[in-house]
Write a protein that binds this DNA or RNA. Structure first.
Lengths: 217, 217, 217, 217
DNA sequence: GATGAATGAGTCTTCATTCAT
DNA sequence: CATGAATGAAGACTCATTCAT
């Protein structure tokens, strides 16, 4: 699941093959930050280079000087973020206490949904629309990681340390319940109060309860 | 939460104020069916009238004869489907057995994700992108319905008939876990085997376990 | 070598599959005429849709309504003209007098260079630049036609009715010497007087002499 | 027809007025070599500085340091090559045997088409497109040279040493028939076998026959 | 001498929408 | 009702050229 630097580089390939100078680093960062803001809200097709350029305080051709195309920016962004996005699952520790590990995973995922909602929506948009640009990653590295952790959870269940639940569906449900607060935040805010993050506390308590009860042996 | 016929009409308003003849009815249906197919997969901006017209076997100007604009088609579609989409929640019965009612709701939602995945993705796309066209519905009719059912669940908990969980977050988690199988089906298929619906059985069992344990008083 | 209507149609495919109405016929003609003027002078890359649109008195998107792309216009033009362009060679008559047939062919080719110089330059531009869009036609239908006529000439030589010359190179030399007056007319005019077609008379006499002497048994 | 050094210099004028150091000389050569490769295949408009810079292993701004503009490179290239390109005609010797002189000229031109096809295509592209950058050369030095040699040929004919043919058209036909194998080589290869230069032998024999017969008194 | 950075002016193409019949 | 025709506005991308170091 690890994206080597090589692969990340390749994805960014425009005219510039790797950030070297200060200026390049600054501009590449500005572009990716702006692109995250725009892509995560409007999806790939709904986003325009104009808007990204504007947010990055760069001219449109200058964007394309750093990244060869709109798609290259999108792919670079997805590649760059994927690793961080999956870190919580990766850190699920075979040596830890099963319940605490899983509940801790839920908590970390929820914190990410709170702190990095744009990243969550970026992937959500991509996947809902059929994952045109990362399907092979889903079918390769992602599947491998999930299978590995599912096997771990299966062993825990086999050993009677957690309830006998389907590990894959457990993982899906954790993704769904936590990312929901980022991806569908507009709806959450519409139903609850529209002010700030106050609902994350309630969400955390609820999910803690949900998974502790579901996993108790 | 009920959309009056009035409102539905208004949303569809193009040149035609209401379907009358057989032909009109057939064409309006064909357009909405084609639009559902296209919008749900590509989002609003990613969809083109050309593609919808092609799928509906109608000319592009003819689409706009029935609906005044691309946006009008989208709004009409969302309006038309919203009621059915919320029916399961609406039918949560105060007189029924609390656990069975809620678990039954989960089951019906999952069945809808299985049978009507395009509808699910249509709303998901809209909401992720900030719900530009249905924000007022979310804040009005949807919030009212959710609040009403949340109050019911709160009473059940108060009466000790289910565990003391936050009703709103319970509802969110049910939406999230069930719609996940429609909205992110590409990812689900990538991680599990890509063949057909076989995972819905596992999902149903898992969710049944999840919510029964979470709700047990 | 005959391009079936099918193939011609396919090449033109934009939104419109075949000219039907008056308006379509008129506009398609106007576009092809304008495109001939522009492409023949500036080559494919050097030509712009803007200039073609301007000459055709149509808007640029309207061009693309009839032909799907700049390349489609170019291909349609080449396809449409190829048949006429090769007609003189095709009409080389096995039953005629060998010398008169060949000299007559030279004369007709020269007349075409005089009357249809733009067509000649269109093909010249395309071929000089590697024939990116008609290479398969050159290797297929064109080669077949040339081989057929070369075989005829070979037989005439074998029968002692003309001198023993290599038929393929004979044909090449005829193409070269006649089309030269269209393709390189700027140079011809620069060296001779720049006024009008007066040099075509001299060219005709010279080429008649050249080929009669070369072919005399 | 001789381009004075003055003129050549002027054409190249960018920031650098004349090559001095080894490095400069090497870079100028590399640029012209790369430009020849690219311009001859894609024409002026179809060529990009990027591609030339890449082939020359230099940066794009560095190209423009040596030559002030894309056009300047093109003009420099044309100027530099013109003299060599016309050398065979220039060396037509009044003191030689008329037939052998002319047939020898044909042979040398054919050898140039074989050995320097890029140069041939460079001029062909330029002239077909109206010679925007060398029209004055065509009308001046080139016309003068051609007129001079035409007069020589006219005298030979007058003296009965060759047949009475129009000298200008004779020269045009020699240009056309020989350069054809360079300019339209794609077509020649498509009609004959696509392997290598084998057809040049046939071409030489044919053209020898063609002109000896045409010129025999 | 050399180049990384930047861009204005194109250039092709898409697309929702309008017009005319 | 329906559609062929047309387009303005926008959008992605290219490219010769300039700037700053």
């Amino acid at each position: 699941m690890t994206l080597s630097k090589q692969e990340t580089r390749k994805a960014e390939t425009g005219s510039v093959s790797r950030p070297r100078t200060r200026i390049q680093e600054r501009n590449v960062s500005a572009i990716l930050e702006a692109a995250l803001e725009v892509f995560s809200r409007h999806g790939f097709r709904g986003s325009t280079l104009d808007r990204i350029a504007e947010r990055a305080h760069l001219s449109k051709p200058n964007l394309l000087y750093y990244f060869g195309s709109k798609e290259a920016i999108h792919v670079a962004l997805l590649s760059e973020l994927l690793e961080a996005w999956l870190a919580p699952l990766r850190s699920l520790d075979p040596a830890g206490d099963p319940i605490e590990e899983i509940v801790g995973y839920v908590k970390r995922k929820l914190e990410m949904a709170r702190g990095l909602p744009r990243e969550s929506r970026l992937f959500a948009n991509e996947i809902i629309q059929g994952a045109p640009q990362i399907l092979d990653i889903l079918e390769g590295p992602l599947k491998d990681l999930v299978d590995e952790k599912a096997e771990l959870i299966r062993r825990w269940a086999e050993e009677g340390r957690i309830a006998a639940v389907d590990p894959h569906h457990l993982i899906f449900s954790i993704w769904a319940t936590t990312q929901h607060y980022a991806d569908f935040d507009v709806q959450v805010r519409a139903v609850l109060d529209p002010d700030g993050d106050t609902h994350f506390g309630g969400a955390e308590r609820f999910l803690d309860h949900l998974y502790r009860n579901a996993l108790a042996p």
